[in-house]
Design a protein around this nucleic acid. Sequence first.
DNA 1: CGTCGGAAATGACATTTGTCATTGACGAAA
DNA 2: TTTCGTCAATGACAAATGTCATTTCCGACG
Lengths: 208, 208
Amino acid sequence: MISVMIVDDDPFVSGSLKIILDNEPDIEVKAVAGSGEEAVKLAPSVAPDVIVMDIRMEGMNGTEAAQKIIENGSSAAILFLTTFLDDEYINKALKIGAKGYIIKQDCGSLPSSVRAVASGQAVFGGKVVEKLPDLLNRKERFDPSEFDITPKELEVIKFVADGLSNKEIAEKMFLGEGTVRNMVSSILTKLDLRDRTQLACFYYQKMV
Amino acid sequence: MISVMIVDDDPFVSGSLKIILDNEPDIEVKAVAGSGEEAVKLAPSVAPDVIVMDIRMEGMNGTEAAQKIIENGSSAAILFLTTFLDDEYINKALKIGAKGYIIKQDCGSLPSSVRAVASGQAVFGGKVVEKLPDLLNRKERFDPSEFDITPKELEVIKFVADGLSNKEIAEKMFLGEGTVRNMVSSILTKLDLRDRTQLACFYYQKMV
DNA sequence: CGTCGGAAATGACATTTGTCATTGACGAAA
DNA sequence: TTTCGTCAATGACAAATGTCATTTCCGACG
């Protein structure tokens, strides 16, 4: 028997979901929470196998609630429900280790999704998968002014990300090798990185 | 009733899978193919809802067979089975629009996965999901075999491109630091690069 | 004029990195 | 069995890198 907790701030939705799931012989809805906060409170005592959670809610939203619940030591598999595709949310959901992300509309597939998630698989609504590649390629923009990176340092960063040595960079910029070394060092400190390789990685991941 | 075709070149495996699935009241195994070629031939007449396919097979492998089948107009949802995580395969599987990719070991979850896939969701084995972010970001204009890059070396390249030091890579791969150093050195020779930073650049420019 | 501050440079140092020759372990092949 | 080839490891070494304290230079500003 799979125990489930439903979290949705719309009583009509959570009611419908409960009916759908309770109708399955091997699924039992143990609790229904009307908000993220309530879900966090209930999770430890209910200890459900699966938490079916709306991702858009008043107050604490789905990902926040899920994060809290996971932090509190729950081993529940989180299955997010959404009415549409929201890039930001999918990203966060993946990051915190959600086990599923499906579209409310096809509630017919909900029971089988719950079962799959309960048995350790991860489930995504068909259209979500198609979007995954795009989503994961998206990077948080990098704002040089945010980190006090000067124009000259920016130039150095690009050279490093081209695989040049300090000496080569020095020649290109008409500086001493030691100077370039100091600049690299200062850049690393500002960006909280360890070495030029990490700087190159940072460049390609956040700046290009 | 969900109709299923099983494809595996190991009769023991396909037999076991058939038993597991036939045991479910709402799932019916309509056909069992012993090779990719046979699967392509059977698919049109069987017209299953779901094809459960081993990804590693003699002759035509899983992804090739799946591609053919899809090209031939089948609307079957493809659910790949694998004994371990193979990056390249996951990539290809996703590209050709597979609906699932799960680990053979947890065959207990197979029925629920089949149901989820049949109802239009996408299913991934738990550990596969964790790797998704890495995998999806990778486009390959670069053919490792072209340069005699071994799988282990490929792994090292990825770690370098993550900014890890030799020592850190060594720990992750359970090798000595000197060994990793030698591997990096050998990679650099093969790719005609100078240092690890250039390797990271190469990775992001040619391999990602 | 002096001096303040930033950019550039220097020198010293520890660490990391890349290269190479060599060795041991292990399995496949003869 | 021996031999071969590959993988992992080791040790030694030079080079590149990163850090830090210090110094020089130069323009701005009082």
